[in-house]
């Protein structure tokens, strides 16, 4: 008479499989699959007219890192220098974002609640605006006949139009403008958490404003600084849209190089190998980040023993 039911465990397992099956298959096929085959590609030989030959080759990395088959390609230090330039520009972008956002985040954190939310809205709004539109605005501003030059000429500040577009500076300005919300949000959340009484305590104990900043404010907002820096650095490093619009032919970043290999030079294995350079840099950065995080977690754990939870 008693109906038989599958055990609770079996029922839950069935639901779990139901939830995970399709997404897992999809992501295994269309996310992990592409990444794996890209890695394989970096070790293949490029075909003469685009395409690949399934012959092992280490020369794709060789061309970048210093060894090459002289019959076809020379080792050219230009790739490393472009990579390093990309790192430099990305780092400059991070720094610029940080310096610009930090005081602003502080200011917003001090506003009354309603204004706070309004300012956060204002700064996240550009995120909803098309990236290409936002960059287009800067093309309009920085061009020789652009808004900035018209204004400066009109005011008589300069006699000749300034040469801003197609420089490193233009690229940094563009990337900074586009990635500001990425820096602001993590920065703000750690600054907002900062307890004002800590600053007062520091001053009370005799620290100057500068000392207070260096010894209290900066260490306490470090998680936001590091988090924001990483999420600005990653998309900056591999960027090719900003340099292609604001850097032109003069400022080439690793992203442009990769794009060329895929869409005009049609040397996919080499392009994939360049891509792996970007990947490697990003992974290295994240590993450092995770190391720092886990160390902080451990410190926090030893400071306050976890509450026993029993049922």
């Amino acid at each position: 008479m008693t109906a038989r039911f599958a055990s609770l465990k079996a029922r839950r397992a069935l639901t779990l499989y139901g939830l995970l099956l399709t997404p897992t298959v999809f992501l295994a096929f269309f996310f992990l699959g592409p990444l794996s085959i890209m890695m394989v590609y970096t070790f293949l030989t490029p075909g003469l007219y685009g395409g690949v030959e399934w012959v092992f080759s280490h020369l794709n990395y060789g061309r970048i890192l210093g060894w090459a088959d002289t019959r076809y390609d020379q080792f050219d230090p230009v790739y490393i220098s472009i990579f390093l330039r990309s790192v430099r520009l990305a780092a400059t972008t991070v720094l610029t974002c940080l310096v610009i956002c930090y005081p602003f985040a502080f200011w917003v954190a001090r506003q009354p609640e309603r204004w706070k939310n309004f300012f956060i809205f204002l700064i996240t709004l550009p995120f909803f605006i098309s990236l290409i539109v936002r960059l287009f605005a800067w093309v309009l501003i920085l061009r020789p006949t652009g808004f900035l030059n018209q204004a400066l000429l009109g005011m008589g500040v300069v006699a000749q139009p300034l040469d801003i577009i197609f420089t490193d500076m233009a690229v940094v300005i563009g990337m900074t403008y586009v990635f500001i919300p990425f820096m602001f949000l993590p920065l703000y959340s750690s600054i907002e958490k900062l307890d004002g009484s800590l600053i007062e305590a520091s001053q009370d104990l005799g620290a100057s404003p500068l000392q207070t900043f260096l010894r209290v404010v900066l260490p306490m907002t470090l998680p936001g600084i590091v988090g924001g820096s990483i999420i600005v650095f990653i998309p900056s490093l591999g960027n090719f849209i900003v340099p292609s619009l604001l850097g032109g032919a003069r400022v080439v970043m690793i992203g442009n190089l990769i794009e060329q290999q895929f869409l005009s030079a049609r040397n996919w294995p080499f392009g994939a190998a360049l891509g792996m350079m970007v990947m490697a840099a990003v992974l290295l950065l994240l590993m450092i980040y995770v190391r720092i995080l886990s160390r902080e977690d451990k410190q926090a754990e030893t400071q306050q023993p976890k509450e026993e939870e029993t049922r």
């Binding site: 008693t2 109906a3 599958a6 609770l8 029922r11």
Partner: peptide, 8 residues
């Protein structure tokens, strides 16, 4: 009197 077993 009815055994519950794994009844949900």
């Amino acid at each position: 009197g009815e055994a519950m077993g794994s009844r949900p």
